[in-house]
Lab assay of single mutants.
Amino acid sequence: SSRTRFTDYQLRVLQDFFDANAYPKDDEFEQLSNLLNLPTRVIVVWFQNARQKARK
């Protein structure tokens, strides 16, 4: 499967949200999905990866 290429804007929004809340609710994932024009699944995985990185 091909990797999603995030724009700088998408990454900034995701990172800002993550800094405020590492565990979004379903409706928040949906809002981010609509805002960033990305599939919810891609955003869910991004947050999983970000939490892994933050733990190191």
Rank of each mutant, 00 (worst) to 15 (best):
R5Q: 14
R12V: 04
R41L: 10
N34T: 08
A54G: 14
E28R: 04
T40G: 07
D8V: 04
I43T: 04
T40A: 09
N34V: 12
V42Y: 09
F29M: 06
Q15I: 03
S2W: 06
N34P: 09
L11T: 14
A22I: 10
L35A: 10
V45E: 15
Q48I: 10
D27E: 10
T4M: 15
K53R: 09
F17W: 07
T7A: 06
A50C: 11
Y23Q: 12
V13K: 12
N49Y: 04
S2V: 13
N37I: 06
A50G: 05
A54K: 04
R51C: 08
K25T: 08
L14S: 01
T7P: 01
W46D: 00
V42R: 10
V44Q: 12
S1N: 14
T7C: 03
F47Y: 09
L35V: 13
R55W: 05
I43N: 00
S2T: 15
K25F: 05
R41S: 13
N37H: 12
R5K: 15
S2H: 11
L14H: 00
Q31P: 01
R55Y: 10
D27Q: 09
L36K: 00
W46S: 03
Y9I: 04
A20W: 05
E28G: 04
N37Q: 09
S1V: 08
A50F: 08
S33H: 10
T7W: 02
K53L: 12
D26P: 08
Q48M: 07
R41F: 12
D19F: 05
R12S: 08
L14W: 00
K56C: 15
Q10Y: 01
A20N: 15
K53P: 06
V42F: 06
F29Y: 11
L11W: 05
L35C: 08
L14K: 00
K25N: 10
L35M: 14
V13Q: 14
D16H: 13
Y9A: 14
N21K: 14
Q31L: 06
K56Q: 08
S1Y: 06
N37K: 12
Q52V: 14
V44Y: 03
S1I: 15
N49W: 06
Q48R: 10
D16Q: 11
Q52T: 11
A50Q: 07
R12E: 04
Q52L: 10
K56N: 14
R41P: 11
A20L: 07
E30M: 15
T7S: 07
Q10V: 01
A20R: 14
L32D: 02
E28T: 06
N49T: 09
L38S: 03
K56M: 11
R12L: 07
Q31M: 08
P24W: 05
P39D: 15
L36M: 05
R3K: 15
L38Q: 08
R3V: 15
L36H: 00
N34Q: 07
E28P: 00
V44M: 11
L14D: 01
F18H: 06
